[in-house]
Design a binder for these strands. Structure first.
Lengths: 204, 204
DNA sequence: CCTACCGATCGGTAGG
DNA sequence: CCTACCGATCGGTAGG
């Protein structure tokens, strides 16, 4: 019995994530969440103090999986170019792979978090963005990226996060396709980092 | 008295747009909207049949202003390169300029629309996207764009729509800056359309 | 457009 | 984790 409790809690988080993503936080009732895991309306409060706590748990789940995916990339000791491509791929995986409801909830229900929850989340979010920012700054310093580092990050995040709205697993584009083309878009043209070619002066 | 009714209705739409954007549709009450324009809770129903109708009106407002901005660009008879840049600028204007609450509501409250409202909206949305798609196809055909036309549109929409989350009028980047750099990102490098240079074969 | 109100639903709790 | 329930709020309406 006690061994099952973490599972029930995890089930609630997973179901809540899906419902929050589909309907939004405010439009999802405790009764919806309870029914999705076969509980009665009062029972989720055995696992969570409030509806807000469920939202926070969902968002934390998304943030932690995003940070884990990121750590797997940065731990490989790759160069900035490969790190960049790996971060894109990891970001898309976190958002798009089956069960990827948590990060979209973070993105689109940010305003529904209580001030206290938001404060707790923001530190993790900053850590995530800081790693991206460092990678982009390195790329910019090496002349491998076209736009400004900070604007690049914001535009990339937008492009990637928006995939949650149109990506279909059975569509024409695989996650890898999207990752590759997004990376190429932001990187300066030219072959892999073997022969580095500095900026060519503009020919008249 | 009768001359003021359209104004009151427009006020309701504007206030509802702001509230929907800030709090989300489900979390905004009729009482919130009424209070924002100095009405009592029952009075908005004199102007709208239901809360859903208010949402539809807000979204239609956003879509129509987006289509108007687009028409102003395409009506100038510009080349594909300039049309592209103009569409980006118009899109950002619609989202970011003061009072730009309507389109973000469309983007983020899409799921809150009733099926009937959604069906009514989707035709306009398709028109908007079709113009973009045609411009991008022309650019691709002319070798002026890097990625695939359809993917380009989806990535651009993502990058542009995401600006609603971070753009600040008093920030370092103007709307023009963002428009310029986004356009340059997607366009093939090279000087303006005077001397067109075809794809250079990859040097070893 | 206001007053007064209704039925339904919702987050949350007590007590087991 | 269920039963039974409460207070509050919400979308919407009647009648003026």
């Amino acid at each position: 019995m006690t061994a099952e409790e973490p599972n029930r809690r995890a089930e609630l988080i997973r179901s809540a994530g899906r419902l929050f993503r589909e309907q939004g936080y405010a439009a999802t009732t405790i009764r919806d969440i309870a029914a999705a895991v076969g509980m009665r309306s009062g029972s989720p409060f055995y696992h969570f103090k409030s509806k807000q706590e469920i939202l926070k748990a969902v968002v934390l789940e998304g943030l932690n999986s995003a940070l884990a995916g990121m750590a797997a990339v940065t731990g490989e000791g790759l160069g900035p170019r490969e790190t960049f491509r790996g971060l894109i791929r990891a970001h898309l995986d976190t958002i798009l792979e089956h069960g990827g409801d948590f990060v979209p909830v973070l993105l689109y229900e940010w305003r529904s978090l209580s001030d206290e929850s938001r404060a707790e989340i923001v530190a993790l979010k900053n850590r995530y963005e800081a790693v991206w920012q460092k990678t982009l700054k390195d790329l910019k310093k090496a002349g491998l990226i076209r736009a400004d580092a900070k604007l690049s990050r914001l535009l990339i995040f937008g492009a990637l996060n928006w995939t949650a709205q149109w990506y279909r697993p059975d569509g024409a584009l695989s996650i890898d396709d999207i990752a590759d083309q997004t990376a190429e878009l932001f990187l300066c043209p030219g072959p892999p980092p073997t022969s580095r070619r500095p900026t060519r002066p503009a020919a008249s």
